[in-house]
Amino acid sequence: MHPAPFAYKAAHSVEEALELLRSHEDAKILAGGQSLIPALKLRLTQPAMLIDISKISSLRGIRRENGKLIIGSGTTHREIEKSSLVAEASPLLASLAPQIGDVQVRHRGTFGGSLAHADPAGDWPAAALAVDAELVIAGAHGTRTVHASDFFTGMLSTVINADELLTEIRVPGEGTPGIYLKHRNAASGYATVGVAVTATHNHGRIGTVSIAVTGATPVAFRASAAEHALTGHAVSAHLLDEAASHAADGLECLSDIHAPAAYRAQLVKVMVRRALGKLLHA
């Protein structure tokens, strides 16, 4: 397969990337390329220019500051998977990373690229929502920070403007227990449904719970009603059953040849229940 022709520039700083974005119409950012390059090959997208940000070292890396994990947008899935810092500070991210694609894809694909692509079957959007990540977006007039809950605007769309770049993602780093469960599409490896759940409990009582779901609907979402039904209550199997059984209420699920909407709704309920069970031991 052969992409349509495009120009290519490698940026070596965020400023240079932004300048290139501003000065070229119909330019696209190339990060890890694991979604973009297949789309180019199938000519589903035909940009005039690619701006390669993979050589910008400041976009890469994982550190902890003030109790938060700061992850550069160009950090690969594999780097997150192998990070002992992430394992300690964000069990949810550590649980999710090795479930993305395959090793080769994780070597190239990036955290920021996945979030900015906002594929409805992507994995990271669920985690970003569940931990209420803060996404730092750079533009001509400096940076702005957007909460994950405001970041995804629809299928394959986010609040990032055409002349902006996602540079950094900040997530809570207190080691809150979390888990990502994924029902893989047997062909693509993408999430038919993926659920990202964090939960704390103390002496048999649930503290905070967050539940986010990807794959089921055009854009990942937080299952707020289920969270609300759980928060502050005593842990019991019945409570978890009840909360999970409503996790798909009112959803208009996606439907395809692999999974009709009703099946996705079922998976949401089952997987939310199983994730809660693993975290709350009930």
Partner: peptide
């Protein structure tokens, strides 16, 4: 897993390895 699926207009919906599931080592 495997099935070639057409829609009623004759479009092949399982037209790539994204949608046609040959087995992987893990399964």
């Amino acid at each position: 897993w495997e099935e070639a699926v057409y829609d009623e207009n004759g479009q092949l919906l399982s037209g790539s390895l994204m949608d046609y599931a040959i087995p992987k080592a893990s399964v």
